[in-house]
Design a protein around this nucleic acid. Structure first.
Lengths: 156, 156
DNA sequence: ATGAGTTACTATGAATTTAGTAGTTAGTCA
DNA sequence: TGACTAACTACTAAATTCATAGTAACTCAT
């Protein structure tokens, strides 16, 4: 099996991550840190305001400012004014941000299997009431990812 | 000695996350950084050896040592001796490590939709030859994550 | 009208982590 | 003996992260 990664050996760093042919690497350039992912989680849970994120995460305000700006700049969140006097902005999910939810559930599913136990937050389908059990499948074959051999094709 | 100290600090730091009731947070305590995820990606692509990871990622050896030990300690990789003279070890995926593949594909799928374009690495089903199109669904309802309302239940 | 409270930040400096390069260990091979 | 390989460790500098304090622009109660 050939390598997924680029063949340059020297100039791979985090800044160049977003130019790599591997879409995993590209995505990780934006959300490849725990704070960003946890902000996305909280945003999906309904949080929108600076102080709500800060209190929920216990993150330093400088960090939060940086992460929110980055996620906004990258189009996962959108800054929206909710008060003119005093001027106040909140951060709401964009479509790209909402599309990130499957990633969070895939991570959570891994955690349930391999880091479960004790008190855990659980997710239920609001209509059927059944607990959500996320599986990532290939839409083409319907097979869960990892159950069938895969061929990796790098460009050029 | 530097490494030992930094490992200790990281463990303290991670204990904040790994004891949380949210399984996403718990998981991110282990793999919530880009290097760890990229190592997991490369491991799935077939890399096993220190120098292969190092060359593929352009990561500093100190970083790589730290990340490989952490992933090994957390049970996503396993150290295996492949030569006694000279003594040489390689890192192979455990079951927990293999179970991480859906997370990587979910991230890749997000990237394809929102950071696609240009030259990208692609994945095909080795048997059918069709390109893999990962979707994360709820096994109970069959509905893609994000298409139905969810109820979050935190422990008391 | 003054002072307390709210919200979304910035400023600052110390602690910690990361990056980059060089060197070490334990060998093999010619 | 000397060159070479693989898997690291040592060291230092640069960058990032953390924690705390402070600020801007208001509102509201006394």
């Amino acid at each position: 099996m050939n390598l997924v990664v680029s063949h340059y050996q020297k100039d791979i760093d985090m800044k160049k991550l977003s130019n790599q042919p591997c879409l995993i690497a590209r995505s990780l350039a934006l959300v490849g840190d725990a704070w960003s992912m946890l902000i996305m989680r909280d945003a999906h849970a309904g949080l929108t305001r600076f102080d709500d994120f800060r209190k929920s995460l216990g993150i330093a305000p400088t960090m939060l400012t940086g992460r929110l700006s980055a996620l906004t700049e990258e189009g996962l969140l959108e800054k929206r004014r909710y008060s003119d006097r005093p001027p106040r902005d909140e951060y709401v999910l964009t479509e790209a941000g909402r599309d990130f939810l499957p990633v969070l559930f895939a991570i959570g599913a891994w955690g349930r299997k391999h880091r479960g136990g004790g008190e855990v937050t659980r997710f239920f389908d609001a209509e059927t009431g059944t607990e959500i059990d996320p599986v990532t499948i290939d839409r083409a074959t319907g097979a869960p990812i990892g159950t069938r051999p895969i061929r990796i094709v790098a460009p050029e």
